[in-house]
């Protein structure tokens, strides 16, 4: 990988309010190919407070995963941060702009300061190394511990994520474990160096519903015990209701609404959020009083192509509330002290 910073350093050392761990300011991330550029994340801003959970919600292609990979600077050879900053408060209190760190500096941050768990526990672990080896590698990389200390810490960690028989499971290979167990191993690996921030990219999407609940409980418990902040990426409003303190709804690379979780569910102020909430299956609500099945309400149309964004509101072509001014650029506006919406009719919803 090239060690050049994504964009040249211009301004003075970044400042961050005391209780903020992560703050994206006007972040834009592009994927540059030979003939065209995909603007996957456009002008995204959000803040994550210490010890809290921010959920980024959106459907496939909304830019939610790219936002998290931008923070980790794991965008691959074609991805680049085209503008904005991602401020992060390190465990020692200093504030860095992740968008401007060298890859060498990022290697010290990944795993030690910010850890990440992924959607696919079946494929995210290396099949050829034991789980103990893979968890222990974190300690080898970041704390340079000796083998017996590594083993002790790995066992501690496996106990913490509630894997029974930790001393034996240590020497198991990933294929000898179930999906839920593997996700527990991923969590143990991510948290063994006690990072300040955990990025969870759809960690329960690939799991059975009952296992999902266990994993969500585990993440919440460890968040409390380790005093960690969590950036939770998901497309599932049910999961959002379970884990989030704050919610940022993303659509076509932009944040369209941001608010505390109870406000998002009680008073959604963007037509897209309304649509997302209406399309959640709900066993009780899906039958009317007479026992007849009600139809789910899908959002009509599809997400616009990243190469051909409409000039105005990206959601307007699918929006039942769209009016003529929606064709001009719409900005994220504060409509209540803690509530932001990118809709000109937010007040009417």
């Amino acid at each position: 990988m090239v060690d050049a910073p994504a964009i040249p350093r211009t301004e003075a050392p970044p400042a961050l309010a005391k209780d903020i761990v992560l703050e994206a300011q006007n972040l834009s991330t592009h994927f540059v190919y030979k003939t065209r550029t995909a603007k996957a994340v456009r002008d995204v801003s959000f803040t994550l407070q210490k010890g809290r959970t921010l959920a980024i919600v959106g459907e496939s292609g909304s830019g939610k995963s790219v936002t998290s990979l931008s923070a980790m600077r794991l965008l691959g050879p074609t991805g680049e941060i085209a503008g904005g900053s991602i401020l992060y408060r390190k465990r020692d209190g200093t504030v860095v702009d992740l968008a401007r760190q060298s890859q060498a500096a990022m290697r010290k941050i990944r795993g030690r300061e910010i850890s990440m768990i992924f959607q696919e526990p079946m494929t995210s672990l290396n099949p050829l190394f034991t789980v103990g080896d893979q968890i222990g590698e974190m300690l080898l990389l970041h704390e340079r511990l000796a083998a017996p200390d590594i083993r002790r810490r790995v066992i501690e960690m496996l106990n913490l994520v509630e894997i029974p028989g930790a001393e034996q499971r240590l020497d198991d290979y990933p294929h000898q474990m179930s999906g839920g167990m593997r996700q527990r191993v991923m969590i143990a690996m991510a948290l063994v160096c006690h990072p300040a921030l955990l990025i969870a990219d759809e960690p329960t999407t690939a799991l059975d519903v009952t296992i999902q609940a266990q994993i969500l409980d585990l993440i919440r418990r460890l968040q409390r015990e380790l005093a960690m902040s969590v950036l939770f990426i998901t497309h599932d409003m049910g999961v959002v209701a379970e884990v989030a303190d704050e919610v940022a709804v993303m659509y076509a690379g932009e944040v369209v609404e941001q608010a505390p979780v109870k406000d998002i569910f009680a008073h959604p102020r963007h037509p897209y959020t309304l649509g997302l909430l209406a399309s959640i299956p709900n066993a009780r609500r899906d039958f009317d009083a007479a026992g007849a099945r009600r139809r789910l309400v899908p959002i009509p149309g599809t997400v616009p192509s990243l190469y051909a964004m409409p000039p105005g509101c990206a959601f307007a072509p699918r929006c039942p509330y769209a009016v003529q001014p929606c064709g001009s650029p719409v900005h994220l506006e504060r409509i209540a002290p803690k509530h932001l919406s990118r809709c000109i009719r937010a007040g009417e919803l």
Binding site: M1, M72, L74, M106, R107, K108, I109, R110, G111, R112, S115, M116, F118, E120, T123, S124, L125, N126, P127, E137, M138, L141, H142, M186, M189
Partner: peptide
């Protein structure tokens, strides 16, 4: 493969 991305996310050298 996914585990290569995991390896990078752990903060190791290329």
């Amino acid at each position: 493969d996914d585990f290569v991305r995991t390896a990078r996310a752990k903060g190791m050298s290329e």
